[in-house]
């Protein structure tokens, strides 16, 4: 079945089985392995990407359902020219990652949060990432990183 999808501003056309999961389209067909998966039941959120500007768990979306849509993954966070998104900078500065497996999904949700809510409280940050499991950080430095990014972006105007 023909899938036409825009990923990180690049258009792709692929013929796939209807049952192909979006996460596998990204990873196996398009080679975008920055998006991970950690469960089969849409609990862990490692596979979180943007579908039409909204974070979704790509292990529970069929690739064919995304046809005609735009997808943004962690590979699309960097600006052209390699400038990092403020969240990427803040995660590095605040030690917001350890094994790095949950990080892409966390970054995508955090970017969405800050785009809608530039000054989130810690509770709002925690709620936003509550569908995404991290086994390394105890969430503390992820929350700090997101708060740091919010402060930096506000200060930069």
């Amino acid at each position: 079945m023909r899938v036409t999808v825009t990923v990180n501003d690049q258009d792709y056309i692929r013929d796939v089985e209807p049952r192909l999961l979006l996460v596998h389209l990204l990873r196996d067909e398009l080679g975008l392995t920055g998006t991970h998966w950690g469960c089969d039941t849409s609990n862990c959120g490692a596979c979180t990407v943007w579908l039409d500007r909204v974070p979704v768990k790509s292990c529970t979306v069929l690739a064919v359902m995304a046809s005609g849509s735009s997808v943004r993954t962690v590979e699309g966070l960097e600006r052209r020219g390699g400038e990092l998104d403020q969240l990427q900078v803040s995660f590095a500065l605040c030690h917001g990652l350890q094994c790095g497996f949950c990080t892409p999904g966390m970054l995508m949700t955090a970017r969405w949060l800050l785009d809608r809510l530039p000054d989130p409280s810690d509770v709002e940050i925690r709620e936003a990432i509550s569908g995404q499991t991290c086994r390394c950080t105890g969430y503390e430095n992820i929350v700090r990183s997101i708060r740091h990014a919010a402060e930096s972006e506000r200060a930069a105007g």
């Binding site: 975008l32 998006t35 991970h36 590979e75 966070l77 790095g100 990080t103 970054l107």
Partner: peptide, 11 residues
């Protein structure tokens, strides 16, 4: 972190 934050870890 330079690679993990860019989705360029290799698992």
């Amino acid at each position: 972190d330079a690679r993990f934050l860019r989705g360029r870890g290799r698992f």
